[in-house]
Design a protein around this nucleic acid. Structure first.
Lengths: 248, 248
DNA sequence: TTATTGCTTTGATTCAGATCAAGCGGGAAA
DNA sequence: TTTCCCGCTTGATCTGAATCAAAGCAATAA
């Protein structure tokens, strides 16, 4: 694991390409060496719980590879996903030690962790990191609000199209390809996880995915590999104005 | 307007009571005088739009009196509220100039604004403010995630009970009363606004409010004044574990 | 090779909430 | 006073998604 690949998020500058993996030249490197000292890696198997709601979380972390979800659960078992962590995303909450939702690895997962206390101290010393973290949190809040529109007002078909568009765009960004032309990606979620994301049942998810396929918006190879035949059409189906919201 | 009543949020410390209005002794006062220099007040009438989605927002602000909402709208007019701003809440996004949703005054509204540029500069000088802002943003994100569970998985009755519980609790905090015993408050939202908050239609809101009244969970005086007969019962109806989530 | 298991699809039926449609009640204007 | 208007309630009906129930399919184990 090269040093360049690790503290991606903490060190990217505002005007650098969103998912680049190299450390930006404009960031000073003091923080980098501090981070090096307090970081460690943890890996989880698919399905393993990283941390339970209410537990103490004595680290903050960023996802290196794999996918994790944040979910909330009601006593009777109803579940709602409230966050989806893809590579380079950040989890954890400097300044609060308990976490309010379950964090689960949905695929094999490698996280780069930083012990919370020294991380917080470092944050106090170097405001740059705190500012970057504020920016990231505000982006996350914007994404959450977009998601609220989806949950509250979109139809099942629109929800599915929206989710596919989000994953397609993030996947494209990760691969450093542009968002034009036919896109292709592997769904990182089961039907049930998609349902938890969208506030639907897994049967409805299955039906609507089939419907989008039948209507030629997407094609499938196997259950998981998706080909987006026309991204603009997909966005239209998603009911999104403009281009589907924020840069993700 | 006394100086003490203004930059409430920016200056409260982590362990001070949540909604206190005096400036905490542990905060240094340099920032206060800076803020004094760059602040101004704006008032809006009920129904007036503070700012449209996509517009430039050259200030950040905190609500002094009245209520504002953040809403997202689809082209066909479907609306979802994504934020509810009560007195002492903060709006605005240091580091980004356009806003991604409509901000509307639902009652007469007084806001204490700070010009964005000098505010950002002040933030860079005094990390304390940035840290406080990060903390507030993380709280807002937690609230948004609670809201996502509501939108995705709760029944209409649970949604209404949840909203009433949220308003009752915030109102009690504002009045500095404790949350025990019969609570009483004026609904600050119309049925339609409640519907936009909850992802329902106004007819369903009306029916479920009537149902909670019929079942003795709440009483009404007129359309707007609500008496919560038993707060614990209300929380139970809301389907919330523990006490309904986060401190608001 | 045949089970087993976990995910997925598809079909039949039900139901919570949306939609359509009156009607109510209180406050402001005439 | 009457009229109008706006926010709210209530009723009748419809419908999209949930629920209940069977199979299908692919990968792994036996």
């Amino acid at each position: 694991m090269s040093l360049h690949e690790v503290p991606i998020l903490l060190h990217r500058c505002g005007d650098c390409p969103i998912r680049h993996r190299a450390v930006c030249a404009r960031c000073d490197t003091d923080e980098l060496s501090t981070l090096e000292q307090i970081k460690y890696y943890r890996s989880y198997q698919a399905g393993q719980t990283v941390i339970w709601s209410g537990d103490k979380m004595d680290f903050v972390a960023s996802v290196v590879t794999g996918i994790a979800t944040l979910t909330q659960t009601m006593e009777d078992g109803r579940r709602q996903m409230v966050g989806l962590l893809l590579p380079s995303d950040f989890v954890g909450r400097p300044g609060r030690q308990t976490v309010a939702y379950d964090v689960t690895a949905t695929t094999d997962l490698l996280m780069c962790c930083f012990r919370r206390k020294p991380f917080e101290e470092m944050m106090h010393r170097t405001p740059h990191v705190g500012q970057r973290l504020l920016e990231m949190t505000l982006d996350e809040l914007d994404a959450a609000r977009e998601w609220m529109l989806l949950l509250g007002r979109k139809t099942a078909r629109e929800k599915i199209a929206s989710l596919l568009a989000i994953i397609a765009r993030r996947d494209a960004a990760l691969k450093l390809r542009d968002s034009k032309g036919p896109m292709t990606f592997d769904l990182p979620l089961t039907r049930e996880e998609m349902a938890d994301y969208l506030g639907l049942t897994l049967e409805t998810v299955s039906r609507q995915v089939s419907a989008l396929k039948r209507d030629g918006v997407i094609s499938l190879e196997g259950k998981r590999h998706v080909i987006v035949n026309d991204f603009a059409r997909l966005l239209e189906e998603a009911g999104d104005d403009s281009d589907g919201g924020l840069p993700v």
